[in-house]
Amino acid sequence: MSADAVVSETDRSEKNRFSDERLAEIEALVKRYPSAQSALMPVLHMAQEDFGYLSMDTQQMVADVLGLRLMQVREVVTFYTMFREQPCGSYLLEVCTNAGCMLNGANELVAHMCKTLQINIGETTPDGMFTVTEVECAGACGGAPVVQVNNVYHEKATPESMDALIAECRAAGGQ
């Protein structure tokens, strides 16, 4: 690093920063583990909750907060499917299509939802409101088929119940 570059404090403000409350929460969290690196996944969950997704800058910020190298953060972010490096719609509809759900009509359900929203699996509606994805077994096969809406489980989902849910979300607006 060149010594001249050391002083610059520019455009830091535009980038994502944890709030002071978050930082305090993180400090307490780190103490629960033998090493700060263990707090990485919980802190990434917080960052994703706060900033919507994990941009490279956000990942660097998380690395700095925990005293890790960027590569250590990158490896974790890309390994786990719940961490997103791109923004998604305000409502993330995750349809389980694994064994139990598949045997109970999940494929038809996801096709129906895509048709209603006029998108393909993995896409976001142009208004940025809905993203539909297929996920692996959600661990709720007793209530197949299962759809998670922003991490809230909807069990025994049907085309009708999903249509109603989508309408409800639309009415609520994207928040």
Partner: peptide, 12 residues
């Protein structure tokens, strides 16, 4: 004994 819940992130 201290007990902490640790949340995974989608990896079977």
């Amino acid at each position: 004994m201290h007990l902490t819940v640790h949340r995974g992130a989608g990896a079977y």
